[in-house]
Design a protein around this nucleic acid. Structure first.
Length: 575
RNA sequence: CGGGGCGUAGCGCAGCCUGGUAGCGCACACGCUUGGGGUGCGUGUGGUCACCGGUUCAAAUCCGGUCGCCCCGACCA
């Protein structure tokens, strides 16, 4: 394509409303423009990238035996009421009424729709297994859209759903998809990790996320430095370890109440009493979805993991109780809460078990206890793994490893759903003995538009984007220093035609711009190869080939240029 | 949902505190110049100062409201 005829509105300055590098560069390099909060126009360059990613996804999904279809984006409320998610999905599900006052929503995901389709058609085990996928726009009215394409409200997603006669076959497909995802992200040229994950709003019993490693990622993940274990911190298990505290006996220091005027947070009290945070017992009060107030105990230097808390309590959503609620229930402000004498139902993190000489709130204003011994002074209702994993924790799987932490951008997730949707929606089949049984399901998503942002987060420098070959909008940028110069123009046009004849995706910068402007724009939009045609080179019958990633430059003979580039691209795409 | 910030030309910003009828850089148009990393000079186009209401002789500026956008928090006890 010719640059002069392509819609590439580049900017000299960073847009004021962008924060992360992928957002800035996508806007500056003319890939996207914002229409509304979390909603973007995809300009020609970004659409090319999206089409590249989609092509890789289609190839690998089809190769894995899945079939593409396309489901509606508008969905009647009845289906969501049937699955129960109309009530539980919350405000993220954007709802509207049609002219007949019927409730609808825009699909944030399509388990209901696909399960409905399958239940109306599939009757026999002979029709299974099935793996159906689509690539389509989704809408989730996010609490806080941000970072450009990283967390939009409207976004492009590949979602696949598989249907099976039994657990075994469904597990086989889960593994099949897991391997397929590895191939997809590798082919996109990304550094990523597959990690164990929580199932969140989708539900199900087993899940892995595919995380593109990037400092700006919204997710914290941990992985073992010795074995293969890796997990989202929301999911990461903690290896229980009884603290090596003193034995309980009559010589143990007695629990003592100390004054801690106005010192509420662990940090404040620790500073005031000159004791380390790990000696503290933090008492957090949560309100459950059953409207019960419960107290959760974690060590002062740990952070609670609400997903684990939900599991330990056997309830749905939990939310930290407000200060007023806490005072109404306990007669003390949250800063001075402690487990001793607390009337609420209490669960404690495993690290609390057997704590000695600990510090905890005294359940009265401006006072804490010191020298608290867990068994002697209080016994929580239950112990459970409640805290977030942190770097340095022992690996829960192997004996010698320790956890390291990273940040990641979640670009894909696979779920083992089981009967979560097939049962409520009545998606069943008849087995070989004529018995009706619920279908076993899995689902598998890839955030296509987010992948574009993730690729840039991982591949950029101070001058702009550096596209991996496989998803670059063009393979080579042909840059005549001065397109008004007849000799240069003729040479550039000739190479352009030769490249096109060989099927090379080439962008010719035929604009009447200064060389500096063209170079800056070239770096900004990040095409992997740049072929510069200049006067001095032309005199020697040579052109300059430069790699965007490392700036490596070669002078190559003019006559061989197209052939050389063609073979470089062929090799790069195979790698 | 809570807190903070912003909204002035296509983009990035100043002006607002101390009210007097709008400015800078880039971009854009034209001319000359220049031609291997955002060339230089000149001339010019472009703004209901987000919107609604109020105060005032006079409002981009002060006051009230609305809308939009960005950031932080929602894991503090």
């Amino acid at each position: 394509m010719r640059w002069s005829k392509t819609f590439i509105p580049t900017l000299k300055e960073d847009p004021a409303d962008a924060e992360v590098v992928s957002h800035k560069l996508l806007v500056r390099a003319g890939f996207i423009r914002q229409l509304s909060r979390g909603i973007y126009d995809y300009l020609p360059l970004s659409l090319k990238v999206i089409r590249k990613i989609e092509a890789i996804v289609r190839e690998e999904m089809d190769r894995a035996g899945a079939q593409e279809l396309l489901l509606p984006i508008a969905c009647p409320a009845e289906l969501w009421q049937e699955s129960g998610r109309w009530l539980v999905y919350g405000k993220e599900l954007i709802r509207f009424k049609d002219r007949h006052e019927r409730d609808f929503c825009l699909g944030p995901t399509h388990e209901e729709v696909i399960t409905d389709l399958v239940r109306r058609i599939v009757r026999s085990y002979r029709e299974l297994p099935l793996n159906l996928y689509q690539i389509q726009t989704k809408f989730r009215d996010e609490v806080r859209p941000r970072f450009g394409l990283m967390r939009g409200r409207e976004f492009i997603m590949k979602d696949a759903y598989s249907f099976h006669v039994d657990v075994e076959d469904c597990r086989r497909e889960y593994e099949n998809m897991f391997q397929t995802y590895k191939r997809i992200f590798s082919r996109c040229g990304l550094q990523f990790r597959a990690v164990e994950a929580d199932t969140g709003a989708i539900g199900g019993s087993r899940s892995h996320e595919f995380q593109v490693l990037a400092e700006s990622g919204e997710d914290a993940i941990v992985s073992c430095n010795k074995c293969e274990y890796a997990a989202n911190v929301q999911k990461a298990e903690i290896k229980a370890r009884r603290p090596a505290g003193r034995d309980l006996n009559e010589n143990s220091p007695k629990r003592e109440k100390v004054s801690t005027p106005g010192k509420k947070s662990v940090a404040e009290v620790a500073e005031y009493l000159k004791l380390p945070a790990e000696k503290f017992i933090k008492t957090l009060v949560y309100r459950t979805d059953k409207n019960e107030l419960v107290a959760a105990l974690v060590r002062g230097d740990h952070e609670i993991n609400e997903v684990k808390l939900q599991a330990a309590l056997g309830c749905g959503e939990v939310a930290l109780a407000g200060e007023a609620e806490v005072e109404a229930a306990t007669q003390v402000s949250p800063g001075f809460l402690g487990p001793i004498g607390l009337t609420l139902r209490t669960v404690a993190d495993l690290s609390i078990q057997g704590m000695r000489g600990a510090v905890a709130g005294a359940n009265e204003p401006n006072a804490h206890y010191i020298e608290v011994d867990q068994e002697r002074d209080f016994t929580p209702g239950a112990f459970a793994d409640l805290r977030l994993a942190v770097a340095g924790d022992s690996c829960p799987r192997c004996d010698e490893g320790f956890l390291e932490s990273y940040r990641g951008i979640e670009v894909g997730q696979v779920f083992y759903l089981g009967k979560k949707y097939s049962e409520p929606l009545g998606a069943t089949y008849l087995d070989t003995e004529g018995r009706e049984r619920p279908i076993e399901m899995g689902c598998y998503g890839i955030g296509i538009s987010r992948l574009v942002a993730a690729a840039i987060e991982q591949n950029n420098d101070s001058n702009g984007i550096i596209w991996p070959f496989s998803i670059a909008p063009f393979h080579v940028l042909l840059l005549p220093i001065n397109y008004r110069d007849q000799a240069l123009q003729e040479a550039a046009d000739r190479i352009y035609q030769q490249l096109q004849k060989r099927g090379v995706e080439v962008l010719l910068d035929d604009r009447d711009e200064r060389p500096g402007v063209k170079f800056k724009d070239a770096d900004l939009i990040g095409i992997p190869l740049r072929l510069t045609v200049g006067v001095k080179g032309l005199e020697k019958e040579r052109v300059e080939l430069r790699w965007r990633r490392d700036g490596k430059t070669d002078e190559i003979p003019l006559g061989d240029a197209a052939q050389t580039i063609h073979s470089i691209i062929t090799q790069s795409l195979q790698a």
